[in-house]
Design a protein around this nucleic acid. Structure first.
Lengths: 149, 149
DNA sequence: GGTTCTATCTTGACTGATTCCAGATAATGG
DNA sequence: CCATTATCTGGAATCAGTCAAGATAGAACC
């Protein structure tokens, strides 16, 4: 979705892993594939998706794979307040998220301010800031309609 | 710190509770006091602080009080990724947080962009956005010094 | 292609934060 | 002061995520 218009294939995932100096294993390829197939999915959903391909994988293997992929920068972990950890495949660009207060669904948004939005705090208290993470809270179209209509 | 220059007293806390149509109970006053005394404290620290006044309170009472106070808008709950829930007494203004990647300490910052920074996303996907939450990640002065010096 | 090394995977138990439940208690309005 | 009803207590339960030890299987080299 971004680097190519075609859907990523298994060999694409294998190349991604090799490119990150990670061993190519079935669980990892399946986890990477699942994160690409289910954007913003939580761990449980990812485990379910992975087990459609590999019914025998342990949840531990999925957790390990997610950690390895996150550390390598192939996936990104996000965790809005009050929600479990979620993972997404869109990495490297500067985008943020909208979270629905009602149903918890997450969507991508680009910040209006520019490339490094809000990265310069008014007073940084002496901190060395390297990233600004923005979470917008509100209601998704479905929940919004349900409440007002 | 903001509405008054003096340190808030017990009767101040009681008035806050009544003003929010909440019953005035010892645990609630103590919890409210603890949140004011320990900015950005996690639940465990708050429980410890509360028990210095009321050694007998159950952790459940503290959790309930924190939820009630949060729902009433008297305290604000924040939860950076990978951290437990933290609470702060500074509410109503538009400020954000810096979190140290190394030690996890949290500090307040005002956003450089203005009053409602980044509140207008480039493409809101049809969401009705009512709040933008910003978390800056980096190193606090102490951790920064330790690593570079 | 075979061998060895070592990271990865499996299984299963465990932790720690938070929530649920039922009964006892206490704050509020009259 | 009494009744009503939200709140508090104590303990069990849940759930995401982690830890540990042994089994397994990529990868590099011969």
């Amino acid at each position: 979705m971004g680097q190519s218009e075609a859907v990523a294939t298994t060999s694409d995932f294998q190349q991604m892993l090799r490119g990150a100096t990670l061993r190519v294993t079935k669980p990892r390829v399946a986890v990477l594939s699942a994160v690409h197939a289910l954007p913003h999915a939580d761990t449980e959903s990812i485990i379910r998706e992975v087990r459609r391909e590999l019914p025998e994988v342990s949840h531990q293997a999925v957790y390990d794979s997610l950690h390895a992929l996150t550390a390598a920068g192939l996936v990104r972990r996000i965790q809005p307040s009050g929600s479990v950890a979620r993972y997404e495949s869109r990495v490297g660009d500067n985008h943020h998220h909208v979270v629905c207060r009602s149903c918890g669904v997450v969507a991508d948004v680009d910040c209006a301010v520019g490339h490094a939005p809000c990265l310069t705090a008014a007073d940084d208290n002496g901190f060395t800031i390297d990233e600004a993470e923005v979470v917008y809270w509100g209601l998704c179209p479905d929940c919004s309609t349900t409440r007002s209509a």
